[in-house]
Amino acid sequence: MNKIIFLLMMVVGGVVLAQTNLPATKVKAPAKPKAPTEINSDAADFHMNIHQAIYRGHVVVVDPQVRMTCTWMLVDLPTGGDHLNHVLAVTNVVVDFVDQKGQTNHVTAAQAVYDYKVVGAMTNETVTFSGNPIVEMPTMTIYSEPLVWDRAANKYHFTEPRMISKDTGTNGPAQKLF
């Protein structure tokens, strides 16, 4: 009888141990929520009737991908959960971001206009710089008026660009870069 009880206890204990030694099931890590866009400024005016905000003085926009500073900025506030679709930044506009190649991009201009539009299945997301726009990358500096940064396609669109390679320091001829 004692043997039977002992065997039963061994069996039950073995099952319990087997259960406790089960490999942990792989739990899929939840997707990291995208950080919101943060805008800081000295002062701001919110016009509720037209869903518009105007930021004044030391405007700093921090996006997960981009950091922008300027002196004055107009934002069409999204309604009904829509995407932010229009931003106008004026005076001393500076945009910094890291591109897909890991290169830092430093853009300066007098004005920048951000537009986001979805047409059918196409998403158009562009930033148009004007007022002596300059892109500084580790290897080159590019001048173009205007300068369009296609965020959806990760491309710059230049108009008669002028490029200065930082390797040689020479002022090269206009080149088709992208």
Partner: peptide, 14 residues
């Protein structure tokens, strides 16, 4: 002034 805008479906491009 501090504003936080949580944009749905924002692209990760750029």
């Amino acid at each position: 002034v501090r504003t936080l805008i949580d944009m749905p479906g924002a692209t990760m491009s750029g």
